[in-house]
Structures are given as C-alpha cells and as structure tokens.
Simulated scan of single mutants.
Amino acid sequence: MTWHATALTLFPEMFPGSLGLSLAGRALREGRWRLDTVQIRDFAVDKHRTVDDTPCGGGAGMVLRPDVVDAACEAALAQGPGRPLVYLTPRGRLLDQALVRELATGPGAVLVCGRYEGLDQRVIEARGMREVSVGDYVLSGGEPAALLMLDACVRLLPGVMGGVDSAEEESFSASEAPLLEYPHYTKPAEWLGRTVPEVLLSGHHAAVARWRREQAEAATRERRPDLWARREPQRIAAAGLASGHAGTTD
C-alpha cells in the first residue's frame, strides 16, 4: 500500500515544494508515496469564500471556522480513510523521531495547516486531531511545518533511502533515549591545518565505534541536557545490572 499524505491548506501551491526534489521527489515520482492537497477555501459556505471569523471573547486575529475545516477534513479522509489527522500547531506535542517512525509505518497522514490564530477548538476535538509542534517558535502558517514533517516521514519509507545503517546511526534514531549524532569527517585528511582524528584513520573498527559513541554522548550532554537527563536512569540501571551479574556465580 502506498503511503498517502494529504495537506489541508489555504495555499496548495506550496506543495510539494522541496518534497518534489532529491530523495523525496524521486520517491514521489516512483510512486513510493502519494501527496494530495485540499484547498480549505473550497468548503466555505458563503459567496465570499470566508474561512475565518473573529475570536469569541475578543482578541487579535482571526480563527478558522469549525464547519469549513470539518468539511475539508471529510473530503480529505474520503481520499484515503484510516489515516490520522495531524494539526500542526505551536501548542502541540513536540515532533520527535519516535512519532515520525510511528507515522511512517502507518498508512499515511492528513496534515491540517493552520493559519491566522489557529483552528476552532471544537473541530480539533470532534475530529480527534493529533496536535503536533515542530519546535518552540511560531511560523506564519502550518505549511512549512507540514513539509518538514513529511520530509522526516518519507525518508523512512521502504526503498527511499539507500543506506539503512546510515538512518539508524542518525541523531534521535536510537530505540533507547536518543543521542545526538557524532561528528563526521572525509578526505582530505588535512584541511586548513585541521586534521581528521587519528582513530578514524586507524582501521580499528571497535576503537572507531567507541570514539563515535563518546563523541555522541559528549555532544548530547553539552547541547541537549534534556535528552541526557532522560538517559541517566537507563545508565544507572544498566550499571547496577552489570554489577549484579559480576558478583553472581552459578
């Protein structure tokens, strides 16, 4: 079954965008995944094709109407039922590799690209949308976030990437609490007075693996203490288990 994505948007011309290039674009042309768009404005109920209205309770900006968005969702799901509805919003759950893997192994997704102040909460609840954020910042709309999420998912689809090992070693790919990826080097061995670490030229595979693990751990401790804190209970448990085994005899 082809992995199927649909974007609900006021700007369908933003798709496929960068997804029409490189690995994702080739996979799209090969039919490894499918991308459709639904123009939210097509489901407006007045002659002016209005999709938003002022927020109840007052305040700045406009809010996308629940009836319009609900009709657009119905049309998108009719193209391929059984797919989760994902609303891209700064107030959602942070997108991570675990969620990307979950979505990539499913039938696809319907991505709702918000604009203005966002969606009426009632349609979010009525449709059981999964609210997802791509980071702690605010974009002008959900389309760039949808492109980002789709890129992360598509590259995990069967046959899209050539090197499975490469994907497994990337940042956030570990099944345990993730580590940032180790630094990479290539030829020439010396450039502008900077040299490739000797261990990477040694041919000693165990030493290379150990160095890479140490570098990944150091980068994670320094740059993402939140991720490192998630690893500590695992490290303590592993150390205790190793100690217990060491002191046990049959």
Score class of each variant (00 low, 15 high):
4 H>K: 02
72 A>C: 02
173 S>T: 12
172 F>P: 11
227 L>R: 13
1 M>Q: 08
138 V>D: 02
136 D>R: 11
250 D>H: 14
69 V>I: 15
37 T>N: 00
225 P>C: 08
142 G>W: 11
106 G>V: 00
242 A>I: 06
5 A>D: 01
63 V>F: 10
187 K>M: 10
22 S>W: 15
52 D>M: 04
101 R>P: 01
224 R>A: 10
236 I>M: 07
145 A>Q: 08
77 L>K: 00
249 T>A: 07
18 S>E: 06
144 P>G: 05
177 A>D: 06
65 R>G: 01
158 P>S: 05
164 V>P: 00
157 L>V: 03
120 D>L: 06
16 P>K: 09
250 D>G: 09
149 M>G: 05
11 F>H: 07
42 D>Q: 03
90 P>K: 14
201 L>H: 11
18 S>Q: 10
82 G>P: 02
125 E>V: 13
231 R>P: 04
29 R>D: 05
183 P>E: 02
245 H>I: 14
196 V>A: 09
4 H>Y: 14
184 H>G: 03
137 Y>G: 00
241 L>H: 11
249 T>H: 10
21 L>I: 07
23 L>H: 13
166 S>I: 03
175 S>A: 13
46 D>A: 08
145 A>R: 14
218 A>R: 15
125 E>R: 15
170 E>L: 14
198 E>V: 12
147 L>A: 12
3 W>I: 07
123 V>A: 03
180 L>E: 11
187 K>G: 03
151 D>A: 09
159 G>L: 13
203 G>F: 13
45 V>H: 14
75 A>K: 04
231 R>F: 13
134 V>S: 06
4 H>C: 01
113 C>I: 05
125 E>A: 14
6 T>F: 02
203 G>W: 13
223 R>W: 08
8 L>A: 02
183 P>M: 10
89 T>S: 13
74 E>D: 12
228 W>A: 11
18 S>H: 13
213 R>I: 01
178 P>A: 09
67 D>S: 12
9 T>V: 00
246 A>V: 00
76 A>R: 00
55 P>N: 05
51 V>L: 02
24 A>G: 07
29 R>L: 07
229 A>L: 03
40 I>R: 00
85 L>Y: 01
97 Q>K: 07
148 L>N: 09
